[in-house]
Nucleic acid binder design. Sequence first.
RNA 1: GGCGCUUUGGCCGAGCAGUUAGGCAGAGGUCUGCAAAACCUCGUAGAUGGGUGCAACUCCCAUAGGUGCCU
Length: 292
Amino acid sequence: MDQLKTINYKLKTLFIVGPTASGKSALAIEVAKSINGEIICADSRTVYTGLDVSTAKPTATDRAEVPHWGLDLVKPDQSYSAADFKEYAQSCIADIQKRGKIPIIVGGTGLYIDGLFYDFKFGPAKDTAQRKKLEELSIEQLLAIISDKKLETPENSKNKRYLIRAIEQGGVNKQKNAPIKDALIIGLAPDRKILTKRIADRAYKMLEDGALKEAEWLFNTYGQEAPAASSPFFKSYKPYFFEAKSIEECTGQDIIKNRQLAKRQLTWFKRNSNTKWFEDTKDAHNFVISQF
RNA sequence: GGCGCUUUGGCCGAGCAGUUAGGCAGAGGUCUGCAAAACCUCGUAGAUGGGUGCAACUCCCAUAGGUGCCU
């Protein structure tokens, strides 16, 4: 207990992680009000402008209650990377702390979270032209280049993206840094059955709230290949617009895709042994309050 | 009632008398500038009962379900 106390007054940052539809955002708002915090969204989808309900972006009401950062940073046709996010979020964190408040980093994008939590040193930025060329090569050809250049082969050697990245940065970036100091990281993971239901409920709610209009706008304005269009929602409803599939069918797909996403997110987040997990929002809230 | 077709793993769906596709869903996993992405691993099923074969999911017969046309 004594030790807990010494840690307590030093905590300066809070991370909240978890799968989609776990209730992270709502928890974050409650917590922020309790510990005088501001929220930084670590979410690779809500950085895009114009896509609000389809990305489950915090609402205007949410934002009026607690300041939110990390939203509406780029247009749907612009690419945004974990390194971009890290740089942005770090300046937010510094600013929030300078004002005497607690930054609360909330998100489901594991790489964005880890980049910050472990202070990743990202390699060089992508070279768009070179990447385009490399993308046309086969796995075998990419592996040949890697072996020619005597670079380390990525563990995931059947994944073109990792192969290309290895060539780009001349090897595999594996330097492990210690977690950042004075941070608490908690995870919210509702029971799988409950989560499945929440995912489905949210899928229908999005439709009611006009998510399809956003999809139509996105496809018409930026095309199907825009970076923002790579999320489950847009992938699932593409057949509705371009192949005359029924909405019901697409919604079924959307729910499945989000369930699969939730699973991957859980797999990712479980690796961080520093994370204190909660099934219930209230428990998580109480714990956080006891720590700050 | 008559004639014909069909029946494959949770779902879809091939080939083949003997080395037993594939896809989807599901489970597990990877992850350091595309990450709500991309990728990896995991499934011996053949409606039921007989029969013919050294050998049948593959051929034959019967039964049951489905389906089509006819009366």
